[in-house]
Simulated assay, not measured.
Amino acid sequence: MERKTGSLQEQALKRKERLKALRERQLHGRGQDDGEPEQKKASLEEPAEEKHRELKLRNYTPEDEELKERQVPKAKPASVEDKVKDQLEAANPEPIIEEVDLANLAPRKPDWDLKRDVAKKLEKLERRTQRAIAELIRDRLRGSEEELAGAVAAVGTEEGDSD
């Protein structure tokens, strides 16, 4: 049992030493013994040297002519009237619809999708039915015309016989 606690204490001490070394490296910059190869160190340092930020003067008015060229122009504030106008337009409520379509509010019947799917077929059948009814009416009219013509002819022959 003592052996386990001893090894745990040793591990804790090693961990503390590693953390202390890491803190020192962070405070004092990168050290030589941080475990990275020399090529990586060189590649990390080169861009830092090449990287040069241009000086931009925002809040400082320089006296030197060269520095005056680097001065950033003053920013112009946005128009308050435009912002207020936009906010007022956004705040206007949409016109309220006075008429409410009851068909949209009422729940649909359970078979509405079946009726929708059959509607095209029913249109075709409705057209065929109308045509058939029109043909039947025409046939009856033709039949009644023939009967009427026959009756007129029969009446005409009877009158001609009686003359």
Rank of each mutant, 00 (worst) to 15 (best):
R3M: 05
T5Y: 08
T5H: 09
L8W: 04
L8Q: 14
E10A: 14
Q11W: 04
K14S: 05
K14I: 09
R15N: 10
K16F: 06
R18H: 06
A21N: 14
R23C: 03
Q26A: 15
G31T: 13
Q32A: 14
D33N: 14
D34H: 08
G35F: 02
P37Y: 07
P37R: 12
E38K: 15
Q39T: 10
K40I: 12
L44Y: 07
P47W: 08
A48K: 15
E50S: 06
E50Y: 07
E50G: 05
K51W: 05
R53E: 09
L55W: 02
L55G: 01
L55K: 11
K56V: 09
L57S: 06
L57P: 01
R58N: 07
N59A: 10
E63F: 06
E63Y: 05
D64C: 01
D64E: 14
E65T: 06
E66M: 03
L67I: 04
K68L: 09
R70H: 11
V72W: 03
K74V: 13
K76W: 03
P77E: 13
A78C: 01
A78S: 11
S79K: 13
K85F: 05
Q87K: 14
L88Y: 04
N92C: 02
P93N: 09
E94Q: 12
P95E: 13
I96F: 08
E98Y: 05
E99C: 00
E99S: 12
E99M: 07
V100F: 02
L105Y: 10
A106S: 08
A106W: 01
K115T: 03
R116G: 02
V118T: 09
A119R: 13
A119N: 07
K121G: 14
K124Q: 08
L125Q: 11
L125E: 13
E126H: 02
T129Q: 13
Q130N: 08
A132D: 09
A132Y: 12
A132Q: 13
A132T: 11
A132I: 07
I137L: 06
G143P: 00
E145R: 11
E146C: 00
E147C: 00
L148F: 10
G150I: 01
A151L: 14
V152S: 07
A154F: 04
E158R: 13
E159V: 11
G160Y: 02
D161F: 04
D161Y: 04
D163H: 09
